[in-house]
C-alpha cells in the first residue's frame, strides 16, 4: 500500500511562495516608496503623491513626456507591422504545405530570438552606419519591427496549429476566394492568437533597452533609455513614481492578454 502521494514533495509549496516573494518584493517596495513624502529615498515619511505630480509637471516632465510619446508610438507601429508580417508568415508556414526550405525559413523567422540582444544591437548599428542610415526615431522603429516579428509569430502560429484546416477548406469548397476564406473564416478564429501576438510584440518593444540604446543616435530617447540615463545619477523618487506607472501599465496589458487568451479558448470550435 502506498504511504505517500507521489505528486507531493515536502517543501515545494514553501519554495513556490518564496519564488513569488522574490519576484514581487522588489516591485512592491518601489511602488510603496514612490508614495513616500520625503526627498530621502531611505526613510518612509508619510504618504503623498508629490512624485507623481513631479513626473507630469516637474522639471523633467517634458523630457519624460517626449520619451513616453516616442516609446508608445514606436511600440504601436512596430507591433502592428510585426503582427502583420508574422500573421502572413504563420499562414505560409502552417498552411503552406511541406516545402524544402521550411526549417531554414523557421530558423530565419526565429533568428531575432536566438541571437543575443547585444549582438543584434551591434550588428544593427554597424549596418545602419555602413549604409549611411541616420540614427534616430526611424532607425529605432525599424530595429523594433525586426525583433518583434518572432514574438508575434509564436502565439499566432501556435493558435493556427490548433485550428483544423477543414474550416477554410470548407469555405473554399463553397467557392470562397482564398482571401475571403481568410477574411471571414480563418481570421476570426485566429483573432485571439493575433491579439496575443500583438500585445506580446507591443510589450517587447516597450521593454527594449539595449538595441534602442545602440541605434537611437543622439537626442532621441525612449522611456527605458531616459530612465537608464536618470538612474545613472542615482535612483530618485520621481523615477520610482514613473516606474510604478509603467509597472501598472504592464500589469494592465498582461491581464488583458490573459483574458483574451481565455475567451479565445472558450470559443475554440474544437
Amino acid at each position: 500500500m502506498r504511504t505517500f502521494d507521489p505528486r507531493r514533495y515536502t517543501g515545494f509549496f514553501t519554495i513556490t511562495l518564496a519564488c513569488l516573494f522574490i519576484l514581487y518584493a522588489p516591485l512592491a517596495v518601489v511602488a510603496v516608496y514612490s508614495f513616500n513624502d520625503s526627498l530621502s529615498i531611505t526613510r518612509f515619511e508619510g504618504v503623498s503623491l508629490r512624485w507623481y505630480q513631479d513626473v507630469f509637471f516637474g522639471l523633467e516632465a517634458g523630457k519624460f513626456r517626449t520619451a513616453a510619446w516616442n516609446s508608445f508610438t514606436i511600440a504601436i507601429m512596430a507591433a502592428t507591422a510585426a503582427t502583420m508580417i508574422a500573421t502572413a508568415a504563420a499562414i505560409g508556414m502552417v498552411r503552406g504545405g511541406n516545402f524544402k526550405g521550411k526549417p531554414a525559413s523557421f530558423a530565419l523567422i526565429s533568428m531575432p530570438i536566438m541571437v543575443p540582444e547585444i549582438v543584434t544591437a551591434v550588428a544593427t548599428l554597424i549596418f545602419f552606419s555602413a549604409i549611411g542610415f541616420s540614427l534616430g526615431y526611424v532607425s529605432i522603429l525599424v530595429a523594433h519591427i525586426v525583433f518583434c516579428i518572432p514574438f508575434a509569430y509564436l502565439p499566432i502560429s501556435a493558435r493556427l496549429q490548433g485550428i483544423e484546416a477543414t474550416f477554410e477548406e470548407a469555405a473554399q469548397d463553397l467557392y470562397a476566394s482564398r482571401w475571403n476564406a481568410f477574411r471571414y473564416v480563418l481570421a476570426p478564429i485566429m483573432a485571439p492568437g493575433i491579439m496575443s501576438g500583438f500585445l506580446l510584440a507591443f510589450i517587447i518593444s516597450l521593454d527594449d533597452f539595449i538595441i534602442t540604446n545602440f541605434v537611437k543616435g543622439a537626442g532621441v530617447e525612449t522611456l527605458p533609455t531616459a530612465i537608464f540615463g536618470a538612474v545613472k545619477q542615482g535612483i530618485k523618487p520621481d523615477i520610482m513614481a514613473l516606474s510604478t506607472l509603467l509597472l501598472l501599465f504592464s500589469i494592465l496589458i498582461v491581464t488583458l492578454s490573459y483574458l483574451i487568451g481565455r475567451t479565445g479558448d472558450a470559443k475554440n470550435p474544437e
Binding site: 505560409g92 504545405g97 525559413s105 477548406e169 482564398r178 476564406a181 481568410f182
Partner: peptide, 12 residues
C-alpha cells in the same frame, strides 16, 4: 495543410 500553398512565397 496546404490550403495556402500556392501563395506561400508571398506570405513568407
Amino acid at each position: 495543410s496546404s490550403a495556402f500553398a500556392p501563395i506561400r512565397l508571398w506570405l513568407l
